[in-house]
Design a protein around this nucleic acid. Structure first.
Lengths: 136, 136
DNA sequence: CACCAATCTGGACTTTGTCTAATTCCCGGA
DNA sequence: TCCGGGAATTAGACAAAGTCCAGATTGGTG
């Protein structure tokens, strides 16, 4: 499957998002790379050729994608949020020194022994982050 | 065990930290409450009576405590870091709406199926965050 | 073509955290 | 007690990420 801009339009529509130029470019940046990108990085990518998209739009759009379930938010670094085009259940491996972030497929991971939730509450998500570092 | 200021001095010394007034106050804020506090909250607590401790010192001190293993950093909210006086192995339950953060004892939790680490890397920590929300 | 709602924009603003140069504190020795 | 010096603290300027708003643009419809 190629992540063409046309396919992006369809993807957006299927998530109930009006596919505008800017939104298509931002989706394309995320999905064609299949990487975790910060808002800053998205801005830089989208505006490489000619300045096209404002900071406000990048932030608004990423928030919209989040609400519509098109991307996931990954909070591992206190200084910036990453956006993840992979919404399948999965976890993260974070290289503390380099800041490199990669996926761990959730398929083979078992987490057991979690306590019952307080009444009236539901789980929104379980984030498992394995922080690793080069051996000293 | 009461978390008196005198006991704090001992705790700091035992972690190879020179116990100054400000450090004792900051440690006392964290340990007497046994809660997760942000740098801002620590600032507010320490300076309630009379303004005593500058922002720079609060940040420097928290970073120092972190390096010396006296507290842990909890990254759940993109907008601020929490500091956790509980350094026993444990995980976190995060109420997305209220921002309330509580501990989950790690004792009964089993995580299996993690993939092998890349060669030459070691695990620095495993953070498990259960995000919950009031049922709609 | 004109209209309207949705979208986008620049830029001011806020918040969290960092940095630096100057000051203050505290301890050990004379 | 007084002094010197390294450690610690300070105020405030600065940086980076993200939010907000009022006005401009866009694009689809009659």
């Amino acid at each position: 499957m190629h992540y063409t801009r046309d396919n992006m339009a369809g993807l957006l529509r299927s998530h109930d998002i009006n596919p505008t130029h800017q939104r298509i470019e931002i989706a394309h940046a995320l999905f064609s790379r299949q990487e975790h990108l910060s808002a800053d990085q998205v801005m830089a990518i989208v505006n490489t050729r000619h300045s096209e998209t404002s900071k406000a739009t990048v932030y608004n759009t990423l928030k919209l994608f989040l609400e519509k379930g098109l991307v996931r938010e990954v909070i591992v670094d206190p200084s910036k949020v990453f956006f993840d085009p992979n919404t399948d259940p999965h976890h993260h491996l974070y290289e503390v020194d380099s800041g490199k972030l990669s996926d761990i497929d959730a398929e083979h991971i078992q987490i057991s022994g979690l306590p019952p939730l307080p009444p009236g509450m539901v789980t929104e998500g379980i984030d498992l982050i394995v922080r690793i570092r080069r051996k000293a």
